[in-house]
Design a protein around this nucleic acid. Structure first.
Lengths: 171, 171
DNA sequence: GCCGAAACTGAGCAGGATGCCCTATTCGGC
DNA sequence: GCCGAATAGGGCATCCTGCTCAGTTTCGGC
């Protein structure tokens, strides 16, 4: 059974609609760790060709980058924090660029509501987190930050419930 | 070149320290999408055996579940929102369980600070999000929710900067 | 400086998966 | 009822995987 860490830089904008068969494939993948195309085909009662074609499509359009599967804790960053950032809105562009320079910021979202940015940040320890927060505050245009330390993953990441339910009619 | 959607239910608690060589492997994986063990070994100047052994270890200890690579948008959930939840703290357990029943909640973290919970939620559309928010509010013990819609992924998820930097001494 | 454990290398082997081709057939929408 | 897309089925050369074993190197502790 082959190993291969699939990682396609899927563009978030392009969202390829996934049909029922794709969903079955995804579910099968989700249930069991490493599967060969042949095994999948057998299990789903499809021809190997079909599965292979659909997997190619999924890889190109429906899979996110491989990064997401790397556990930051393994890299030595056991602390996870969510930092809310209030900024001068017209400086949002430069601020985003500046924040993107900080390695510990894993992802950042622009938000509606009172806060402007939500950052997912990892850190080596509390002191490290303090330092990172300082770097964010130092960015020109940042007015305030609120740091919330993640104490526990109360609902561990999962996609299964959505897969179980099957694909939505995309609207 | 084989395909295989690697997915090990890595326990978040167990964080296997990743050394420099592991990091090189991860970086190689991150740079290029699908790689065979042979290709990795060649590229890194290691023996196939070594790479294979390290990959097994990484799969078991440093990789998160495969779910994370699935783009919710492809499943028909293009909307992403972060919902902050204030709860009666002593009911946190039951609340967590109740919230975990909601499929659209992809992950939930317990937080320090004013808010108690931060949920990552996907939805089909605004109306759907409203409905989901209602389900959360309906959980016994939930006092208030704040929904922030993610307008854009200003800093797209990435781990590369941390990988570039190499492993931290885990403390 | 020495010892032992852990990691790495190199080799080999059987099984089988991949990637790709082609064609006939089925299915669904128009 | 027709057309196009998706699928099944078969085939083939390549070469990857998983596993084992022994010998060598590296590294850390004493």
């Amino acid at each position: 059974m082959p190993y291969s860490a699939v990682r396609y830089r899927a563009n978030l904008r392009i969202m390829h609609p996934v049909d029922a068969t794709d969903t079955r494939i995804l579910r099968a993948l989700a249930v069991d760790p490493r599967r060969t195309v042949v095994a999948l085909a057998q299990e789903l009662g499809l021809s190997r060709n079909t599965v292979q074609a659909r997997l190619s499509r999924l890889e190109q359009h429906a899979f996110l980058a491989f990064d997401r599967r790397i556990n930051p804790a393994s890299l030595g960053y056991p602390l996870l924090a969510f930092i809310t950032v209030h900024v001068q809105q017209r400086k949002l562009g430069p601020i985003t660029e500046a924040i993107a320079q900080i390695p510990e910021v894993l992802e950042g979202h622009g938000l509606t509501g009172t806060a402007d940015l939500l950052l997912r940040v990892v850190a080596v320890d509390a002191e490290d987190l303090f330092r990172i927060n300082g770097k964010i505050l130092a960015c020109d245009g940042v007015e305030r930050t609120d740091t919330a330390l993640a104490m526990g993953e109360l609902v561990p990441f999962r996609m299964d419930p959505l897969l179980e339910r099957g694909p939505r009619p995309a609207g």
